[in-house]
């Protein structure tokens, strides 16, 4: 996989009269790990939904690896190299872990022959083998045959991330991947993300945990009320008075 850059320019989105994203511009260099941070309601998840095409922007452009994808339908974007997890873990609860991962592979296995191969009768099939290997890399292989429904939160959270990687994206969007994980699981997630970057994935991460951001992301974009208020290294943005005010209210000003 080739790392892909992302740039958004003048992105604007409102729902009814509520302006959620206003004239947002930032760039995620190819191969970097960039964090998108900001208080609750700052528009981070909406930005993800605009980048992946769940919502159409009212104005502005989105470029992936230099290519304008603003008008590309959501379903085609994963094929261009964008994949994402979901803040609220949208795995298919009635399916096994393995089947959920096969869903994540779909974009590479959507041809008619792949669609009609009875993989469930073929335990050694390459799609299964690949999904199992991806699970094994994260130490989660023992859950492969289990139904997602009954699994603990932290494991489901991590499987949601694994599923997002199975399309082999050049840009991976992670919405609060560490939220709700215990320290051991967080360490494992760090190792996983390091591995993905080493393989050439650009990461754009929404995260509230600043230790996590500091450990993984070299570049930070700060949103507040749908606007970018700061950009730079974590240390730089933490010194920024606008950022301090956004997080601490009027107290720091």
């Amino acid at each position: 996989m080739t790392p892909l850059s992302l740039s958004v320019e003048g992105l604007t989105k409102s729902f009814g009269g509520l302006s959620v994203i206003r004239d947002l511009s930032f760039t995620v260099p190819a191969g970097s790990a960039t964090a998108l941070i900001g208080p609750n309601g700052a528009g981070k998840s909406t930005a993800f939904n605009l980048i992946t095409g769940v919502y159409r922007p009212d104005a502005g452009r989105i470029r992936l690896g230099g290519k304008d994808i603003t008008g590309t339908p959501s379903r085609r974007r994963i094929g261009l190299g964008i994949a994402r997890n979901f803040q609220n873990i949208r795995l298919m609860p009635h399916l096994s872990v393995l089947e959920n991962l096969l869903v994540g592979q779909h974009v590479r296995a959507g041809g008619l022959i792949d669609l009609l191969t009875p993989y469930r009768l073929l335990p050694k099939h390459r799609w299964r083998a690949e999904a199992l290997a991806a699970l094994a890399e994260c130490g989660l292989e023992r859950h492969a045959a289990e139904r997602v429904q009954g699994l603990p939160y932290g494991i489901r959270k991590r499987i949601d991330v694994v599923r997002a990687t199975l399309s082999r994206p050049g840009l991976l969007l992670l919405d609060e991947p560490a939220a709700g994980l215990n320290p051991t699981e967080t360490q494992a997630l760090h190792r996983h993300l390091d591995m993905l970057r080493a393989r050439g994935m650009t990461l754009l991460i929404v995260e509230h945990d600043m230790h996590f951001v500091g450990r993984t992301c070299g570049h930070v974009v700060v949103l507040n009320f749908g606007e970018k208020i700061a950009e730079g290294s974590l240390a730089e943005v933490q010194r920024d008075p606008l950022v301090r005010e956004a997080y601490l209210g009027g107290m720091a000003a």
């Binding site: 992946t52 095409g53 769940v54 959501s74 379903r75 085609r76 974007r77 994963i78 094929g79 994402r84 979901f86 949208r90 298919m92 609860p93 009635h94 399916l95 089947e99 096969l102 869903v103 994540g104 779909h106 974009v107 296995a109 959507g110 792949d114 669609l115 009609l116 191969t117 009875p118 993989y119 469930r120 009768l121 399309s167």
Partner: peptide, 26 residues
């Protein structure tokens, strides 16, 4: 036989969460 294929898996995925199925490229 069809129930053992990705086609059946896709249908289940759509029933479960059509937005995610779409984002997965289905």
């Amino acid at each position: 036989l069809l129930s053992c294929t990705r086609f059946a898996l896709c249908l289940t995925a759509i029933r479960s969460d059509a937005v995610v199925a779409d984002l997965m490229g289905m």
